[in-house]
Design a protein around this nucleic acid. Structure first.
Lengths: 190, 190
DNA sequence: GTCTATAGGGCGATAGAC
DNA sequence: GTCTATCGCCCTATAGAC
């Protein structure tokens, strides 16, 4: 082996922070302009770097889109995990509350994942996403997935992700959360 | 005045039909690829003409976007008109049924108007649209627009426009319609 | 109402220096 | 991990013939 090497130079920015900043900027732009409407140049501009620096972190624009969705997918998995061991009624409650909290915490990205055509088509072909969606749908549909229940679920799914278009969502966060849970529970009460 | 003119030559295609076909093609592409993701070239390709022919009918891409939304705006106005002379309770019922029928009839476009960032931003600055939305919101919010009612309305508005993402919407249309009206009524029953 | 042709610029992506 | 420079393509929009 070689003689002792000097300790690796401390990065000026912690490992992965540049990547995290990029994901945050991209998520924000995707939410307001759509994926197709967001150029790599505009992402680079927001970070104060060039396009080439963006390409150093991600091989393609599609990779950035997936990376933006990843934290939401992870939360979907957590929700499904938490509900998996519960009885059907409690599982439904946990799933609804989890989805509302997710929609509120990741409002822009969660909405973009459902609304943006580019993002939606990419995710439909991304198995880690479709798997978690299938688990949550199964929880909310229950043992007897009638047509009426399926329609109510699609309706509620769209509603919960529509918060991006709620400008006056200001107000007591607890009140907002409770009202959303109530609305979703009512919509699903077939 | 001049002497009698010969009758105008019969158009090979009825007046405005080219325009209507273009709007239909654009609406379909906007719904599946988003406005930003749809080029004028792709619209022209679908019609079997060139881009220049498209520019003969519309001065800009924005004009096409507005033209696509126009039929939906007209139906929103009809719904608000029909409900205007009714008592609050009946007005709500008429509004809900009208919105469900609208969402089912113009599924792709109605969804695009709410979901697509480009379309939504254009419409937010288009007074004929915002005026009708305000009328319908007022009908559904009732005399006491509490925060909870506003949240339920936003939720229901997103849900009713989420039908584009319902692949299995096949089935008895009457059943689908009834299930949607029921889900929306429940969501709004604050 | 359609065409060809082109202006003028932005796009995603790559190469290679530092 | 950032830069400059560039490739090749596609974009919206315009000009002008038929």
């Amino acid at each position: 082996m070689d003689a002792e090497k000097p300790p690796p130079a401390r990065r000026r920015t912690p490992r992965g922070q540049g990547r995290a900043r990029l994901i945050e900027a991209a998520a924000d732009l995707f939410a307001t302009q759509g994926v197709s409407g967001t150029s790599l140049q505009s992402i680079a501009d927001r970070l104060g770097v060039t396009k080439a620096a963006v390409y150093h972190q991600f091989a393609s624009k599609d990779d950035i889109v997936i990376a933006v969705a990843e934290p939401v997918i992870a939360r979907l998995a957590s929700i499904a995990d938490a509900a998996a061991s519960l009885a059907p009624t409690e599982a439904r409650t946990v799933a609804i509350e989890g989805l509302v909290d997710l929609a509120l915490a990741e409002r822009g990205t969660a909405a973009t994942m459902r609304r943006d055509p580019t993002m939606a088509q990419l995710l439909d072909a991304y198995e880690p996403y479709t798997r978690q969606i299938a688990r949550i749908d199964a929880l909310l549909l229950g043992a007897e997935p009638t047509a009426e229940r399926r329609i109510a679920l699609a309706f509620a799914g769209g509603g919960i992700m529509a918060l991006g278009s709620l400008p006056g969502l200001a107000g007591d966060p607890h009140e907002v959360r409770a009202a959303l849970i109530a609305a979703m529970t009512r919509a699903l009460a077939v």
